[in-house]
């Protein structure tokens, strides 16, 4: 109900790292000056491979409502195969944004009148030297480009820090490549 809160819903599969991705963006948003940052994963059982979503709320002021997002301003989809199982655009506000990891061109995807930002994050991650299937660092690059909410120059060091001991340079490169190769459709 508060107008000052930007609501971003992250769709992924259990184990895919949507929480880590949202956490990196949350940190970067806080560093960028947003005082209110709340990230809430799906409450309950955690099952590998099952569709999950994570709510990220960002505001200049402290956020008190911890309930899951129902009317997102933005939706981030880590895995295009989810589109067949989940209505990712459910409740998306007018003029909203969908950021999607998918292999096909942006024009192939439509979510009502929402803006769509597409990058083949899976491919860019492999090109950056990561094993196949690591998409949570790359999607951050696409999110940064499409949303313009958090600067990529703040996100890159945040990614390197989060992935210490887990291929930090490759993960940062995946984000950078996805950032540079995000295409837009409607």
């Amino acid at each position: 109900m508060r107008k000052d809160i930007i609501e971003i819903r992250w769709h992924g599969r259990g184990g895919q790292g949507a929480i880590t991705a949202a956490k990196i963006v949350a940190n970067a948003a806080f560093v960028s000056g947003y005082k209110g940052v709340v990230m809430a994963p799906t409450f309950g059982t955690e099952r590998r491979g099952a569709p999950v979503f994570t709510s990220l709320k960002i505001s200049p002021e402290k956020i008190y409502d911890l309930s899951p997002i129902t009317t997102p301003d933005m939706v981030v989809v880590l895995d295009h195969t989810l589109l067949e199982e989940v209505d990712v655009a459910d409740g998306l506000k007018d003029g909203g944004l969908v950021v999607l990891n998918a292999p096909k061109p942006a024009g192939e995807y439509r979510f009502g009148g929402a803006r769509v930002g597409v990058a083949d994050v899976t491919a860019h991650a492999v090109a950056a030297g990561l094993p196949p299937g690591i998409v949570n660092s790359g999607i951050i690059g696409a999110f940064s480009r499409a949303s313009g909410l958090v600067d990529i120059d703040i996100l890159i060091p945040a990614i390197k820090k989060e992935f210490i001991g887990k291929r930090p340079e490759e993960n940062a490169m995946a984000a950078k490549r996805a950032y540079e190769n995000t295409a837009f459709g409607e």
């Binding site: 806080f30 005082k35 940052v37 809430a40 994963p41 911890l66």
Partner: peptide, 10 residues
């Protein structure tokens, strides 16, 4: 539980 235990905030 969950509302605070599993949410992230600064």
């Amino acid at each position: 539980g969950y509302l605070l235990s599993h949410t992230y905030m600064p």
